[in-house]
Design a protein around this nucleic acid. Structure first.
Lengths: 201, 201
DNA sequence: ACGTAACCATACAGGTCGGTATACTCGCAG
DNA sequence: CTGCGAGTATACCGACCTGTATGGTTACGT
């Protein structure tokens, strides 16, 4: 048997994934070698391969982990805003965009999934499914927020898709420094599309 | 003197740049080595370095070339729509989004500048300036189209920035396959923002 | 007590990376 | 006719790449 069953759920596996996540995000997937990941995680390369099987699979694990973290954080933040009184519909959509802005402030390299797609998009790579998953999830977030506010299905889908474009566009405009207030602009546009006065902020 | 003055304007330099442009776009910057570029261009590596000085500079040349091509093509397409009767304001903004969609259909790997930014964004790289240039240019396209239609400066800038987010978002949603009709959605949103009925198409 | 999973350390294979060195040929402009 | 720029071919450099091999240690469950 060439290699142990890849089961990353060990202390060392956790350290590897944490290190890889940071390095992949900050320097790009192709910009980091497995040697360096193992070194910085205080682990031998053998352990890395025993836990994850291959670099490609480690990359996929990185993307899955990142998605999990984002979904958890985002969900909690949104729930907090709801608890604080954000009403269904436009208010919660704008809240979602504010949350995204807050995240972006601590994640200056932009959307990990867009970046990953730029590097592995053309290839047959286990990470690509995760990228698509994230994009579809965020699209669903917006359409669901509108559906739950009583919009008819067709309207919720049409408007949700439009807001989703503003969301994705804002991340790009923000990270590339094309627009210093990209998220504020996105909120103004979303407010207009949903027919409510734009809160100044 | 270690190396001749980098002047890419020769037949071999042209072949190198053409080959590099295709490979960089299709497989990513870090996904292509200079050896391969030289090979496929029918040129020795020495010639490549004589013409371009370094891989980083070749990457910057690729981005500049790509930008030039896009600006030329986009300008011509927009001029054609204007000649065909597209009136100032919303009509030309929607036309611009249609042109972008057409380009995207032949450029399935998405925005070369977003992709490049994902790979070199964190680094001190000569290509980064070109990326920013492209993003600021497209932002200016939309604001200028509105200014020329008589919008007050502040309105043109605010609305232009909103449409720019839709544009960037549409490219992302389209290339990642998150939204199959991303550009149509962007046009619907832009039409709503500009207060005109959305042309079905 | 024994097996086994999870780790350690070292080494190496086979290839690619960006970049340089040497030596040569061709065509053209002074 | 000579000097130079543009190109060829080949070889090399050290560093890095993903991945494997060998062998030994620790801890834990049955």
């Amino acid at each position: 048997m060439p290699r142990r069953t890849p089961n990353p759920r060990t202390a060392a596996g956790e350290r590897i994934l944490a290190t890889a996540s940071e390095l992949f995000y900050e320097r790009g997937i192709r910009g980091v070698g497995v040697d360096r990941i193992a070194d910085e995680a205080g682990v031998t390369k053998k352990t890395l391969y025993d836990r994850f099987g291959s670099k490609d699979d480690l990359v996929a694990a990185y993307l899955r982990r990142r998605r999990e973290r984002w979904v958890d954080w985002f969900t909690a933040q949104l729930a907090a805003r709801v608890a604080a009184g954000a009403r269904p519909g436009a208010e919660r959509v704008l809240a979602a965009l504010e949350i995204a802005e807050e995240w972006a402030q601590d994640n200056r390299r932009g959307c990990a999934f867009v970046n990953a797609h730029a590097e592995i998009g053309g290839l047959d790579h286990p990470g690509n499914a995760v990228v698509l998953e994230d994009k579809l999830y965020m699209l669903a977030v917006f359409t669901d927020l509108l559906r739950e506010a009583g919009y008819a299905d067709a309207d919720a889908e049409a408007l949700g898709a439009q807001v989703h474009l503003l969301y994705e566009g804002a991340i790009i405009a923000d990270t590339t420094h094309a627009q210093p207030h990209a998220f504020r602009t996105a909120r103004a546009a979303a407010a207009a599309l949903l027919g409510v006065p734009a809160a100044a902020r």
